[in-house]
Simulated assay, not measured.
Amino acid sequence: MSTQTPDDQAGRSPVRFDTKIAVLLRDDLETWQRLNVTAFLVSGLGTEAPEVIGEPYADADGTPYLPMFRQPVLVFEGSKEVLTAAHGKALQRALPRSVFTSDLFATGHDADNRAAVRAVAAAGLDLVGLAVYGPRNAVDKVLKGARMHA
């Protein structure tokens, strides 16, 4: 948790969060796949770590909008090997995480997605994406070898 809240800092210096939300994508994905995988991966973080969700939004007319993450989501990319190593580190550190495997591109709904992941042992997952949340330094260690997505 940050020592300064975004509301306290409105209009002033940027807030530095003590935690990090990061997505790591395999570097051989097509653009539509990168977008799709990112959306799926981050969708679960708010249920596992509700503190990542901010307050609901409203426009000047009072029209309500859903809340979003309270901090930035950083997107990284790396090779299959970097992704596999990051997955292992996230498991070792027991950080909240979500995975997207290549098999999920061929499934059509949530039940099939879960069955496809369940059918493969952790070490054998053909990962194309990983989302992770936790203390900044722990997430940085998980992402070692990855580069910011361009």
Rank of each mutant, 00 (worst) to 15 (best):
I21Y: 01
T19A: 12
F100I: 03
G46H: 07
V23C: 07
R93N: 11
E48D: 12
V75S: 02
E48P: 00
P96I: 02
L125R: 15
L125M: 12
G88D: 05
A86M: 05
L66F: 09
H109K: 09
S43L: 02
A115D: 13
R26K: 13
G108I: 02
I53S: 03
M68V: 13
R114S: 02
A116F: 08
L95W: 04
Y57C: 00
R34E: 15
V42I: 14
A85H: 08
V132W: 04
D126H: 09
A86S: 14
T101W: 02
I53M: 14
V99Q: 07
A94D: 10
D110P: 00
L41E: 11
L130A: 05
S13P: 01
I21N: 13
L45T: 10
A123H: 04
T38Q: 10
P64H: 02
F105I: 07
A86G: 10
A39Y: 00
D110A: 11
M68T: 12
G129M: 06
A106E: 11
V37F: 08
F69K: 00
T47Y: 10
F17G: 01
S98K: 03
P64Q: 03
S102L: 06
F100H: 11
E55S: 04
A85M: 06
V75F: 02
V99A: 04
I53Q: 03
T101R: 04
W32N: 08
A116I: 03
P50L: 08
S43M: 07
T107A: 02
T101Y: 07
E48R: 13
L35E: 14
A90T: 14
L45P: 05
L127D: 04
A121I: 02
A94S: 15
F40V: 13
K20F: 01
L66I: 01
V42G: 00
P72G: 08
D110T: 09
D61M: 13
H87T: 00
A86K: 06
E51P: 01
D18S: 13
H109V: 00
G44F: 10
Q33R: 14
Q92R: 14
V15Y: 05
R93D: 11
R16K: 09
D103A: 15
L130C: 08
I53N: 03
R34Q: 15
V23R: 10
T84K: 14
V23I: 11
R12A: 09
L24E: 12
S79P: 07
I53K: 00
R118Q: 12
A111C: 00
T84R: 15
T84Y: 01
T19D: 12
T31S: 09
L24G: 02
V52E: 03
S98C: 09
T101G: 05
A60F: 10
V37Q: 04
L25G: 07
L83Y: 08
I53L: 11
Q71I: 09
V120K: 08
I53H: 01
L74M: 13
R114E: 15
